[in-house]
Design a binder for these strands. Structure first.
Lengths: 336, 336
DNA sequence: CCGGATTGCGCCATCGATGCAGCATGTATG
DNA sequence: CATACATGCTGCATCGATGGCGCAATCCGG
């Protein structure tokens, strides 16, 4: 690759500023990092150096600064994606909350690729992160194992692990309630009580397992049993959900429990790619501001991102003993 | 704040590894950073040190490493938000493309707050970023001025500046084509040819100005003129768009040109919060996978993120002379 | 068996910021 | 006028990794 910067102009350092100001680098350092009162530097000098720094466009070299300091105050997060409402909002709120607490957030997106997750976790260790939030990681315990030798704690978000504290949604309860509602609506609108389809996610992951359990529980309450051919789980991919639906020969009156807005993208594409389906209704575990207004939508189970992140930061600041798992209630949002 | 890490266990360094392996830190360094063949280190030692590093869970200290190296390979991006499809996808693709090129992406989200943008830009300078992508910055030239003393180039994305190269959408052309389509559809569906509403964005920003120009041009072609009371521009905020619509007393047959999915959130909330509006149609500049299937939607003008980022990286690798502005055609996606 | 080449590795200065331990001054106290 | 003390600053070692330079050992051709 070509050089990014042909003219790697020297950035001013505290030595340059010291020379200009006719003082020592230590004084400049103290002035610019705010410890100057403690170090009994005169306000006059502080003001002068501050002005010179401003003029020269000085910016501290974090590499040098962090190398010397004992704490980096860097907090890392790995997250599968940015481009859906759930993870996008997590990333955005995480940054804001970290900054409020005087921490430097560093986020990286791993495309739900286990190898990338591991690589990203190592990179966070290299950045000297003090703590790593593993969001929706395919193998949270693997991440924990990478952090351990560096003495870094990790905290699992969205998908739980066994080695470190985890903050997840109440997937069972949320799924049960959402399923009840879809069943009720199907019965009310069409007079039919029948098992729903469960669409999206992967059978191996904890969230899907728990949601499936809630889904089955709500069916069982009504004396319905769920056969596995009603569960279409091909991972978190819109395209795969769409293709699976196309292959499934579904018609008439049906209800879908859609396990994530990602799968829902496939569902709505399938709905709009084929014949009219007046007898179709769905509910979705996860929230999206536009999906909530789609005509067939019955309601969305919104994960409480604020509450989850609050708990995450509580764990960051006050490490709990052991590896507790916190289940956060979801917020139900009926559509329309 | 409480200590993040009560037991700041020492992370292993090359000195530790050298001691264990009975060799020198330089050898360890060369082995672990891949320059060992050049330095004529024996494969046997390399293999042994590699194994020890693995066992000890060694991770290079990037702060120390970057301090010493001449190039950081860090490429920064500031972006207003993560939680909508446009910016989320930009962030995600930017990361992937940077990594493909052997660069370290660092992204930070500025909530469209000018002060935060400036602070974030300074932070990027402190990270020794080699280049900064200013996405949708409220004042791109201010960012450029922060980068300049450090000898760092910035590249503007989405909103253009005058000091540095900019990559933006063809806002005029896209808006004109979208407006034409909405006008046509309103006429076809309702037999009425009337001026549309323009909703969202802010009058001061370049993109809104250009889109408004396209909007007016398409109206002018049909002999229509656009009065300013038809332009509801209260920034990029769903709540403000919603409130403004509620105050506007709109009814009957109307067409909306919605300037961003953020404003569209407000529009759909307003639509669903009031009486049925069978005579309403809208088109939106920006794309969203769910919004595209909303019943009143006529079509979405999708910005070509891939093409824009490709151009951005071209500028990163081969700095152009001057401050060119590249206008990228949008991709029109009719709804349904 | 000797000299030059090659192999394999260690020494040390360096990157920029930090903070401890001084070291001059000035200023109050007995 | 000597002593204590506060004020305002400087010198220096340090954080961990890097890479130029150089040194010892081995090898090979003549």
């Amino acid at each position: 690759m070509a050089a990014i910067n042909q003219t790697p102009q020297k950035r001013p350092t505290i030595y340059d500023l010291a020379q200009i100001a006719g003082t020592s680098p230590s004084a400049v350092s103290a002035i610019l990092n705010g410890t100057w009162k403690k170090r009994r530097i005169s306000a006059a000098l502080a003001e002068r150096v501050g002005r010179i720094a401003e003029e020269q466009g000085y910016a501290v070299n974090l590499q040098a600064s962090l190398l010397r300091r004992e704490r980096s105050r860097i907090i890392g997060m790995i997250i599968p994606k940015y481009d859906n409402r759930y993870f996008g909002a997590i990333a955005e709120q995480f940054e804001a909350m970290a900054r409020e607490r005087g921490l430097f957030p560093v986020i990286t997106c791993t495309q739900r690729d286990p190898a990338l997750e591991v690589e990203a976790a190592r990179e966070m260790m290299s950045y000297q992160a003090e703590c790593l939030i593993a969001t929706g990681a395919t193998n949270p315990d693997r991440i924990a194992a990478i952090c351990a030798p560096a003495g870094v704690r990790s905290i699992n978000l969205d998908l739980p692990g066994t080695a470190m504290p985890s903050v997840v949604s109440d997937n069972f309860g949320g799924a049960r309630d959402l399923t009840r509602l879809i069943l009720d609506r199907i019965e009310r609108d069409f007079g039919i009580l029948g098992p729903l389809y469960f669409i999206g996610g992967r059978a191996q992951d904890h969230n899907t397992t728990e949601r499936l359990r809630g889904f089955r529980a709500a069916h069982a309450e009504r004396g319905l049993s769920v056969l596995s051919d009603r569960c279409i789980m091909h991972g978190y991919s819109a395209a795969k959900s769409e293709a699976a639906l196309a292959a499934a020969e579904i018609d008439g009156t049906v209800g879908f429990f859609v396990n994530s807005t990602i799968a829902l993208e496939g569902v709505v594409r399938w709905i709009h790619g084929g014949p009219e389906r007046p007898g179709l209704r769905f509910g979705c575990f996860d929230w999206d501001p536009f999906a909530r207004f789609l005509p067939q939508n019955i309601g969305m189970m919104r994960q409480d991102i604020g509450a989850m992140l609050a708990k995450v930061f509580e764990f960051v600041e006050h490490p709990p003993p052991g590896a507790p798992r916190i289940e956060t209630p979801c917020i139900f949002e009926p559509a329309n």
